[in-house]
Design a protein around this nucleic acid. Structure first.
Length: 658
DNA sequence: ATAGGGTTAG
């Protein structure tokens, strides 16, 4: 959709503009954050006849141009000499004695500007002050503060700022923005806000550079409401935000995964006639990825190309990540072809992201080509990221031989294995039943300092669930015991013949609350599978109940007036089977109590595009067949099994009688 | 890094 603006710009956006909703809070005005500074505090009453006070200066602070210094070469050489000497004050002062030219204002400024690291800049400023050669000005402090910011020396910066105040050297917008961004980089967000508020108190109005620096402070704090309030008041003061301000907003909404927010940013840019630059596009692409909108990211990328911009490494990294996560093989391959044919820039991060993308999608040959390219290149030699991606590709593709080859190669070339690599190897060795090698990889990893995480434990647990012999189980359990003894203890507990549900419940709760969120459901799935493989018939149901109790299976059972359904897409084969039986049991009770039932029942397994759900549909189908349940594979929706009430009820009744 | 603001990896 195109919007022709009065500025003559044609701005194209991938997002339909007409139905853009504002995130809910945009309609609520709050004036509580910088109480008393910007406008009347805590009042939502706006008097339309009284214009609101301006919050920023529309004129950006101008900087005095450099006068050409004919001695620039000589001074630079001397500055380098100072930069290279020892950081001690003595060493510094002794080199200073050899200063080749008179330290006039201009000469001193040039040296100050060229010094690094921050210790030298600071020492030089102090030297100028003690020499008392000329009056100190704001610019000397600004230059020094910038150097100190590099070294993240917020305390020193604040000390200098206070010194400026007591010596009546004016702080300007450059001073404040440097202080604020330094505080931000040091994660001292309260300090950043404090100095921003101090500006207004001293009667200095921020310009757009300081203002967008502060927008970013609130954005990093995740205070979207405050950011929007500041932004909108800036606009109400007549400010036309530039691409940097929009980049800040887009990044904030991306981090929050807030799609409505992203649309708001796009709409604001269109209505204000601001054309996105490459950085804004990159931020928006990243944001679309985080909001889970690969299709919109793709059209945004098309728009970027149509606007005549050339993507850089960051653009392509975002896109590769998005296509990989979405498992969009066709788009991923097209992107790679286009990158090669148009000679778009590549860097190390992009190489590794492309490899990860190939691993997510299972593009083996493409990954091998990329990996070879990296080996041949000068600056992008494969590192532990690259090797991990290769382990993932071979591991998930079941090519154990290749995976082990790369594992050996890593230690030969001295690339450290990480916990993800270990997990990939263990997963594929487990699937191949090569338990002795699995034990070896686990031991080597632990000896190399790898700390097994919850995902690795989940992986070991899933290997246990597939073991065919007691001997294999014991080998894997020995590894798991080193990583998470409590889990092994829990397995013993649920295998005991006499078993107390309350004890199991307490221990389950404890384990789950100590487990990272993304590993909780896999744990529960594996535990159910293990119990099923041991024919511990009631226990899978208890575990499924406990998992549901602690919120691991939200949305498992769904009801509408016309249809009741079961969604097992995030369950393992055994857990799905258990959930089906549980559901049938509940429905049988409903019949017994002669309660109302809908016309249609359905169970969703998904189609197995996600690697956790591979094979789920088939095994679910065969379990239905075994039970002779009247569910049929839906013709219009793959991975969905449906039953009519008229067929299901008699079947459930017949089960009740047996 | 030649006085100030925004973007790349499980």
């Amino acid at each position: 959709m195109a919007a022709s603006l009065s500025t003559g710009l044609d701005v194209h956006f991938a997002i339909p503009q007409s139905d853009t909703k504002r995130p809910i809070f945009f309609t609520r005005r709050k004036f509580t954050i910088y109480s008393g500074l910007l406008s009347k505090p805590k009042s939502t009453w706006v008097n339309p006849t009284k214009p609101k006070r301006s919050v920023l200066s529309l004129q950006r602070q101008t900087r005095s141009p450099y006068a050409y210094n004919p001695k620039v070469r000589e001074l630079k050489l001397f500055a380098n000499k100072l930069s290279d000497c020892d950081n001690s004050e003595e060493a510094f002062l002794s080199v200073l004695e050899e200063i080749p030219l008179e330290p006039t204002r201009e000469n001193a400024l040039l040296i100050l500007n060229s010094l690094k690291p921050w210790q030298k800049t600071h020492l030089f400023l102090n030297w100028i002050k003690t020499k008392n050669l000329f009056p100190m000005e704001t610019i000397f402090y600004n230059v020094t503060m910038k150097s100190l910011r590099f070294g993240r020396q917020f305390e020193l910066i604040e000390e200098l700022a206070n010194e400026m105040v007591s010596n009546e050297i004016p702080l300007d917008n450059i001073t404040y923005s440097t202080i604020i961004t330094c505080a931000k980089r040091c994660n001292l967000f309260d300090k950043a806000v404090e100095w921003f508020e101090r500006m207004y108190k001293t009667g200095l109005m921020p310009d757009e550079v300081t203002y967008s620096a502060v927008l970013d402070v609130y954005a990093k704090l995740g205070k979207a409401e405050e950011v929007v309030s500041l932004y909108e008041r800036g606009v109400a003061s007549g400010w036309k935000p530039d691409p940097i301000a929009f980049s800040v907003l887009a990044k904030m909404y991306g981090e929050a995964g807030d799609y409505d927010g992203i649309r708001y940013v796009l709409q604001e840019m269109t209505s204000l006639g601001v054309r996105p630059n490459l950085v804004v596009y990159n931020t928006l692409l990243e944001a679309m990825g985080k909001a889970g909108k690969p299709g919109l990211a793709r059209s945004l990328f098309q728009e970027l190309l149509e606007s005549g911009l050339t993507p850089n490494e960051k653009t392509l990294t975002s896109l590769a990540k998005i296509y990989g996560k979405a498992r969009w093989a066709k788009d991923a391959l097209e992107l790679w072809e286009e990158m090669k044919s148009k000679n778009w820039p590549m860097d190390f991060i992009l190489y590794n992201t492309l490899l990860t993308m190939c691993a997510d999608i299972g593009l083996v040959e493409e990954a091998e080509q990329l990996f070879l390219d990296m080996k041949k290149s000068q600056h992008c030699r494969p590192d532990s990221w690259s090797y991990t991606a290769m382990l993932k590709i071979y591991g998930s593709g079941g090519n154990v031989g290749k995976a082990m080859e790369f594992f050996e190669e890593m230690s030969e070339v001295g690339v450290e294995l990480n916990v993800m690599g270990t997990t990939c190897l263990i997963q594929c060795l487990g699937k191949a039943g090569r338990m002795d090698e699995l034990v070896k990889v686990f031991s080597v990893s632990v000896e190399h300092g790898i700390k097994p995480d919850d995902r690795l434990c989940g992986c070991l647990l899933s290997v246990v669930s597939r073991c065919e012999s007691r001997a294999d189980v014991d080998k894997v359990l020995a590894c798991l015991h080193r990583a998470n003894p409590r889990l092994v203890g829990f397995l013993k507990l649920i295998e005991e013949e006499v078993y107390c549900l309350d004890t199991v419940k307490e221990e389950f709760k404890g384990i789950i609350s100590d487990t990272k969120d993304d590993a909780r459901r896999p744990f529960c799935n594996c535990l159910i599978d293990i119990c099923l493989s041991k024919n511990l018939n009631k226990r899978p149901h208890d575990l499924l109940y406990l998992g549901t109790l602690y919120g691991l299976h939200p949305g498992l059972y769904n009801k509408t007036a016309d249809e009741w359904s079961l969604d097992v897409r995030s369950l393992s084969v055994g857990a799905a089977q258990t959930a089906l039986e549980e559901w049938m049991g509940t429905l049988a009770k409903t019949i017994k109590h002669e309660e109302a039932l809908p016309l249609l029942f359905s169970a969703q397994t998904g189609t197995g595009t996600h690697k956790f759900s591979q094979g789920l549909s088939n095994s679910f189908a065969s379990h239905l067949k075994k039970l002779a349940a009247p569910f049929r594979q839906s013709e219009e929706k793959a991975g969905c099994f449906v039953a009519k009430r008229e067929d299901l009820v008699p079947w459930l009744r017949s089960r009740l009688q047996t």
